[in-house]
């Protein structure tokens, strides 16, 4: 089983309802989004003029780049297969892939807000609200919480033209699987090849424009990310906490960091 979403560009009119419904459902800060809609074109393609949209969200990848480097605490969790009720115990970091549904999730109480996962995602599907005192990563959960209550994902429920189709990719009878069989495609290539589970269907010209302009061209590089992320975040967090505007070197940072930390306790 693998939850997946298909976005049918023939149906999508680019109304942004999905983005706003999600904001309301999950109290997402105004300046961020768990999902988004970007207008593409009108632009020339080999198949003719195209004007379409990139409604994006977390791809809940088969081989997520965001989970392995998580700096949050491990925890033992019990997972349940929503179809069979079967359970499985597993030790996971603060962000992990559900062994049954394939949804990539975050336990925000164990997230330390380091931002590794945010930087690691080639689709930029995660965010951290730096304005919070204790920022933690957030992203699309495929609304597994709503699914558990028998509800559709918020973006699917609000979609005017049923352009968003959600279901189990591995169930050949599902509408999602039917779309995939008919050629729905994902935003991947040889370089970015981590098995995204958001698929797009549409005519040749729109698919061309989407694939050409919205497929990530590179995987963020891990070691670089670590350095950049840690330094940047430390600096930002400290300067915010102490009311300083600049960084004066690593030693000072460290000293300030421990001071800030003590204030907390």
């Amino acid at each position: 089983m693998q939850y997946a979403m298909v976005i049918d560009l023939d149906r999508c009119v680019g109304c942004h309802a999905c983005a706003i419904a999600c904001k309301a459902e999950w109290s997402v800060p105004t300046q961020f989004g768990r999902n988004w809609v970007h207008r593409l074109g009108p632009a020339k393609t080999p198949h003719g003029l195209s004007g379409t949209f990139y409604p994006g969200l977390c791809n809940h990848c088969d081989d997520p780049a965001c989970t392995p480097g998580c700096q949050g605490e491990e925890a033992e969790k019990v997972f349940t297969d929503p179809k069979t009720g079967k359970t499985k115990k597993m030790t996971v970091l603060a962000t992990y892939k559900d062994p049954f549904t394939g949804a990539v999730l975050i336990d925000r109480d164990r997230c330390v807000g380091c931002g590794f996962c945010v930087e690691a995602c080639p689709y930029q599907a995660r965010y951290i609200d730096e304005d919070l005192d204790d920022p933690r990563a957030d992203k699309c959960s495929f609304c597994v919480e709503r699914l558990a209550e028998g509800l559709e994902p918020a973006c699917v429920q609000t979609c005017l033209s049923r352009a968003r189709i959600f279901g189990d990719r591995d169930d050949p009878k599902s509408e999602v699987a039917q779309y995939i069989k008919k050629g729905a495609r994902r935003l991947d290539n040889k370089v970015v090849n981590i098995g995204p589970n958001v698929y797009y269907a549409g005519n040749k010209r729109d698919m061309h424009l989407l694939k050409e302009t919205c497929t990530p061209t590179e995987m963020p590089e891990a070691s670089l990310i670590e350095k950049r992320v840690l330094l940047a975040r430390m600096g930002k967090s400290i300067s915010k906490g102490m009311g300083l505007t600049g960084l004066v070197g690593m030693a000072a940072c460290t000293a300030l960091a421990s001071e800030t930390n003590e204030e907390d306790e």
């Binding site: 204790d134 920022p135 460290t254 930390n261």
Partner: peptide
């Protein structure tokens, strides 16, 4: 574990 503690240890 808090973010600040994490940053401290990391740094």
């Amino acid at each position: 574990m808090t973010r600040r503690r994490f940053l401290q240890s990391a740094s």
